[in-house]
């Protein structure tokens, strides 16, 4: 399966404010507010400034959050990356 690579918005473009169970992310480029829940904020943080695909992301998150590093995790992450791309928070690298 194709595993496209994405790049997250630069850190200075986003203002991230945890509000209890959700996280509000303000994108200074679009002026849009995104209300997201785990694992989207963790994914953005794990991507940092580098180009990243679902496999690489799975490895990084597995190290931090005790995730199984398998096909299922990668498929879920791939789906989340597509959602983040639709919001404009990541873009194809």
């Amino acid at each position: 399966m194709a595993d496209p690579t994405f790049r997250a918005a630069p850190a200075e473009a986003l203002r991230v404010e945890p509000l209890g169970e959700v996280t509000a992310i303000f994108d200074r480029r679009s002026t849009q507010t995104h209300l997201v829940v785990s694992p989207l904020p963790e994914i953005l943080a794990a991507m940092g400034g580098e180009a990243c695909n679902a496999s690489l992301l799975a490895m990084r998150l597995a190290a931090r959050f005790d995730l199984p590093d398998g096909a299922e995790t990668r498929a879920v992450l791939s789906e989340r990356l597509r959602e983040l791309a639709a919001l404009g928070l990541v873009e194809p690298a």
């Binding site: 203002r15 404010e17 509000l19 209890g20 169970e21 959700v22 509000a24 303000f26 200074r28 002026t31 507010t33 209300l35």
Partner: peptide, 25 residues
């Protein structure tokens, strides 16, 4: 009511939230 839910309800109750940009956020 939690912070997140209050936030959502108030964005819906505001007529100029999106026009204010980061100041509104």
């Amino acid at each position: 009511i939690g912070e997140g839910e209050a936030f959502v309800r108030l964005t819906e109750a505001s007529t100029n939230y999106t026009a204010l940009g980061e100041a509104g956020f």
